[in-house]
Structures are given as structure tokens and as C-alpha cells.
């Protein structure tokens, strides 16, 4: 079930989300949490570990794609499901931050949706009258 910080974007074959935030760091944080909310039913725990993030991109949209792809890479290679994100610094071409999560655990983590990739299709990251807004479509 979609939480209030994002809205599911309907797509004929796949899915996506839109999210808003008053600042850019909050937007990226919301986007990562929306991705995990769509993909996993998970609960934080004392055994959650922290991963440092440094991501770059040619512009804000590429930065968003690369940032979210980082989590798919961590899931594939280290089985990590994240539940908390903090952005430390963000500029249009680079961000640093931290993510907390744990390796997928049977009985604790329920997979809701398999995401193959973050796409550029109808991608939007920008400032609007309502603050910062992102729309991201996922390849399922």
C-alpha cells in the first residue's frame, strides 16, 4: 500500500512513483523510500547496518537514476533491503549520504515487487510550484 509521501504512477506494463519534498535532499530520500516501499514489506531492526553512499550523475535526472540504481546493485550483490535513508550533501551532479538496512531475511522481509531497473522513461526531477518533484518509472 502506497504511503502518503509518494503516489504510484500507472504504466501499462510496469510501474512507477511520484514524490515531492520541500528540498532536494528530502526528494531523493523520499524517492529511495518509495522504491523500497514498492519492492519490500520490511521492518527495521537493531541488526540494521549502515552503508555510505556517494553517487554522481551528469544532471539531476541522471543523478536520481544512478542513486536509485545503487540500491538495486546493493540488493543484487549484498542482498540489502534498506529502510532508512539520509542525504548528507547534494548538488546537481553528486550526492553523499547513508542508508540503513539488513540482508533479506525469510519471515521478516516479504518481496512485493521485483524491479529490474530505473528508467529514463518520462523521468522528471525538478522544482515546481509545489516544491521539488520527481517522477520515476521502473522496469519490472
Amino acid at each position: 500500500m502506497a504511503r502518503t509521501f509518494y503516489r504510484v504512477v500507472e504504466h501499462p506494463a510496469d510501474t512507477g512513483f511520484e514524490t515531492t519534498a520541500p528540498d532536494l535532499a528530502g526528494l531523493f530520500q523520499n524517492a529511495a523510500l518509495a522504491l523500497f516501499d514498492l519492492m519490500w514489506e520490511t521492518t527495521p531492526g537493531e541488526d540494521d547496518r549502515m552503508v555510505n553512499l556517494t553517487v554522481s550523475g551528469g544532471d539531476l535526472e541522471e543523478l536520481m537514476v544512478n542513486f536509485l540504481e545503487e540500491f538495486l546493485y546493493l540488493l543484487d550483490t549484498r542482498q540489502l533491503v534498506m529502510n532508512r535513508i539520509a542525504i548528507d550533501t547534494i548538488e546537481p551532479q553528486i550526492l553523499t549520504g547513508k542508508a540503513w538496512g539488513h540482508p533479506v531475511t525469510a519471515g521478516r522481509d516479504q518481496e512485493l515487487l521485483g524491479v529490474k531497473a530505473i528508467t529514463y522513461h518520462q523521468l522528471f526531477v525538478g522544482h515546481t510550484d509545489q516544491g521539488w518533484r520527481a517522477r520515476v518509472l521502473l522496469d519490472i
Binding site: 551528469g58 541522471e62 537514476v65 544512478n66 540504481e69 538495486l72 546493485y73 543484487d76 550483490t77 529490474k116 531497473a117 530505473i118 529514463y120 522496469d139
Partner: peptide, 16 residues
């Protein structure tokens, strides 16, 4: 994931 990463890597490269 190997194929997904190849596609993503080259979409990035080919934007330029």
C-alpha cells in the same frame, strides 16, 4: 542483474 547493469551502464554512456 548482469544484463540490467550492462543496459544501465550503456544508457548512461550513450546519453553523451
Amino acid at each position: 542483474g548482469l544484463g540490467h547493469q550492462v543496459c544501465g551502464d550503456f544508457i548512461r554512456l550513450l546519453q553523451g
